[in-house]
Design a protein around this nucleic acid. Structure first.
Lengths: 238, 238
DNA sequence: CGTAGTTTTGAGATCGGTCAATATTTGTGG
DNA sequence: CCACAAATATTGACCGATCTCAAAACTACG
């Protein structure tokens, strides 16, 4: 089950036998969590970080008046809250979008790993920096793109990220309803609905009850002015 | 000149004499750069990271059609692109907002430091994770807050960050014109102008030619529903 | 098969954008 | 110090993307 995590790493960085084994040894027995479960709450002290082995989850922030912003989506192979290794508590929540398989890796194990294998330390540091790059791209999206552009950019990103872990990037189950898409894209559910229809009419994207089908990737990329550079799909050696 | 950097660190984490000296030894002779200078360009390979000793600078992303999003502002004491230590090249640009004093720290020095002083390694990892937290808060701002709320939140953030490095958080020179504020807040310069007038009329904030005066911090916080938790002003020990 | 959740649609309102003109400030050369 | 140019800020009129509110249609599921 840890294979997706290794695939994701190896796509960007080489791993020695030794290093790969060290990672395998890091990950305890996984558990299953149903969809729409909150697995990390804002402010709680964390002694372990969650490695997502299968499924999708998201990070989100709530405001006192009920507004919600989903700040990032995680796919299989991602550490969902590796940043808690240094932050200790998070300023956001994390919830599953689909049924998930995940493993809790104690921070103490991570500390020992990164001290004994400094290159793996940099590799996991890279991983949190990559998350931040996605956060910045979402800032760009929220600040500068139209509703259709934001929607297009989101599905372009998911396409590349899923393809990287050798999953189908053309057709996938996101598990998000239109209200959740709205929370991720800074718009209302009503407008998500109308914009999805627009994209469907233009034969760019079909989204039906949480199932996404990318009909025209190039068209979506053009609409969003999407540049996958921020995903660091081909990383330099550490 | 490195004092602000140390102040910033010590506000959150204790430092042994040894560790403090290691940090002092890390930082080469600073140089001065005038305002509005681009110091890092998207995609260029970086062998060093920039420690900002004095002044303000920002990270920004440009789109093919000319739209621009400023994704973060850095204050004195911040590493502006420590994430380049692992990413090697950045997907955004960095430019100075005011005249700046900065020092370029070679990645090789950083690598040696974090291997020899794992606790400092975690501390600098924390620092990039803190940047990411601010990126997430800006996502929230861009996605959920009104124009006035976004403006208010920006100045609340700057207030706390400047106060942390023992600078005046009530009155400071941002060096940004209204068009730049617009690029940071996902709005147009015209609307920034109108919203600034609104905040001035409400005796919340005065902004005149790059000089900010916070007239009513609590009022701004209420308007923005601002919660400084994401700034991790009181961090846990590493 | 009833009920709750979700999606779809319509009508109208509004926040913020666009375009364009004017005013103000800053910088520069003489 | 002045004259001018360039950048920046301000204001007005109008526009439109997106929101709000509300109802209806659809879907999933016990």
């Amino acid at each position: 089950m840890i294979e997706r995590h290794l695939i994701r790493i190896k796509a960007r960085h080489s791993l020695s036998m030794d290093e790969e084994q060290a990672i395998r040894d890091l990950v305890p027995t996984p558990r299953h969590v149903p969809r729409n479960s909150v697995i990390v709450r804002e402010g709680e002290r964390l002694e372990a970080s969650t490695l997502l082995l299968d499924g999708l989850l998201c990070r989100y922030k709530d405001m006192p008046d009920g507004k919600r912003q989903i700040t990032q989506i995680h796919v299989a192979g991602d550490f969902a809250d590796l940043h808690a290794f240094t932050l200790k508590r998070l300023e956001h929540n994390i919830m599953t979008l689909t049924d998930c398989t995940l493993s809790r890796v104690p921070h103490e194990s991570i500390r020992i790993l990164v001290e004994q294998q400094p290159r793996l330390g940099r590799l996991y540091w890279f991983s949190t920096n990559l998350d931040a790059s996605m956060n910045r791209e979402w800032e760009l999206s929220l600040g500068q793109r139209s509703a259709a552009g934001r929607l297009a950019a989101l599905f372009c990103e998911l396409h590349y990220r899923l393809a990287m872990i050798e999953m189908d990037g053309e057709r996938f189950s996101l598990g998000m309803n239109q209200a959740q898409l709205a929370d991720a894209l800074g718009m209302t559910a009503v407008h998500v609905n109308r914009t999805l229809r627009l994209l469907r009419d233009q034969k760019l994207l079909d989204y039906h009850r949480g199932e996404a089908t990318i009909l025209d990737l190039k068209g979506l990329e053009a609409l969003a002015e999407f540049d996958p550079g921020y995903l660091y799909l081909d990383a330099d050696p550490l």
